[in-house]
Design a protein around this nucleic acid. Structure first.
Length: 297
DNA sequence: CGCGGGCCCTGTGAGC
DNA sequence: TGCTCACAGGGCCCGC
């Protein structure tokens, strides 16, 4: 399931392959829940547009395009099983393909998503919802903020902080007064964005912290360890091309390798790699949660 | 507002 | 061997 390292891998791969190309044609599947913006609007904004860059924000892929000198952002959220693939036209179109962007060199960017938890949307400069620091209302919560150069887009990814760059003080402040278990807090995208089930479990193991601990009760020293563990595990996963647990692949359809380094995730009953105690699985915040009862206090 | 729980969606694999 | 069914979970919605 694509989390920060997987989304980063895909975004970088797509960026390297299609940056600077022009989109000549757009096809969409018509499956309503895939599209947060009307398909006609997406097609109109992208057809004839030039791809300026593709990058990751939280778990969202942000494709910045310009058309008639006007910038827009095409947002791709992979959900659980979403893939963003750069293909040549002769490659067979996979089942559950929901969008195809044809490029001026005939290659195609394809969005494939069997489970349809993924979402596509388009955002134009000048879209509303810009009020700084305001909580998005139900009317504009889906509407992203236009991005001026260097500014982090807001609105569609929530106000979450980037786990790779957040300062220790800001990190500690996130969990102050949070009665929820630390694992649930890590998954909350309005606190940190990009962390999902795999890396929450893996970081908590590496920090020696039980996922059930109340966030507010963690000592500063434990949060320091947790932040360091998160950064380490995310960076290592990016280096290895992400975790391919079920069907994650990069922009070329290639699997990642970080699943081989998992210490707890989906290792229920197997011996802890550090102490040999069988890894335990519980349900927390509605998610399967794996930990070592001995190493994690 | 914070938090927990239900739901969406389909491929996979365990079990009978 | 073939079928059924639980399970996987990010994000959103609802209710307390």
């Amino acid at each position: 399931m694509p989390e920060l390292p997987e989304v980063e891998t895909v975004a970088n791969g797509v960026n390297a392959r299609v940056r600077g190309r022009r989109i000549t044609q757009v096809w969409t599947s018509g499956k309503p829940q895939t599209f947060k913006s009307p398909e006609t609007e997406i097609a109109a904004a992208l057809t004839g547009a030039k791809i300026e860059s593709v990058r990751r924000v939280g778990k969202t892929i942000v494709m910045t395009v310009t058309r008639d000198r006007k910038p827009a952002e095409f947002l791709i959220h992979l959900g659980m099983t979403g893939r963003l693939l750069v293909c040549t036209p002769e490659m067979p179109v996979a089942a559950h393909t929901h969008a195809v962007l044809t490029l001026d060199d005939a290659r195609e960017v394809r969005f494939v998503d069997p489970r349809r938890f993924g979402r596509l949307s388009i955002h134009h400069a000048g879209d509303e919802g810009r009020a700084r620091g305001s909580t998005p209302t139900s009317q504009n919560r889906d509407v992203g903020h236009p991005v001026t150069s260097g500014e982090r887009p807001r609105g569609y990814t929530g106000p979450g902080k980037e786990p790779l760059t957040i300062s220790l003080n800001d990190f500690v402040a996130l969990f102050r007064n949070r009665k929820t278990p630390i694992k649930a807090a890590l998954l909350n995208q309005s606190l940190l964005h990009g962390v999902g089930n795999i890396y929450a479990d893996e970081a908590l193991f590496r920090a020696g912290i039980r996922p059930t601990r109340q966030a507010a009760r963690l000592a500063r020293d434990e949060l320091k360890k947790l932040r360091a563990a998160l950064v380490t595990v995310l960076k290592q996963a990016i280096k290895l091309g992400g975790s391919s647990v079920s069907d994650y692949v990069d922009a070329d359809g290639v699997r990642g390798f970080f699943q081989l380094r998992h210490k707890v995730y989906q290792r229920t009953g197997e011996p802890c790699r550090d102490c040999g105690t069988p890894i335990k699985k519980i349900t927390l915040a509605g998610r399967s949660t794996h930990f070592c009862p001995t190493c994690q206090k």
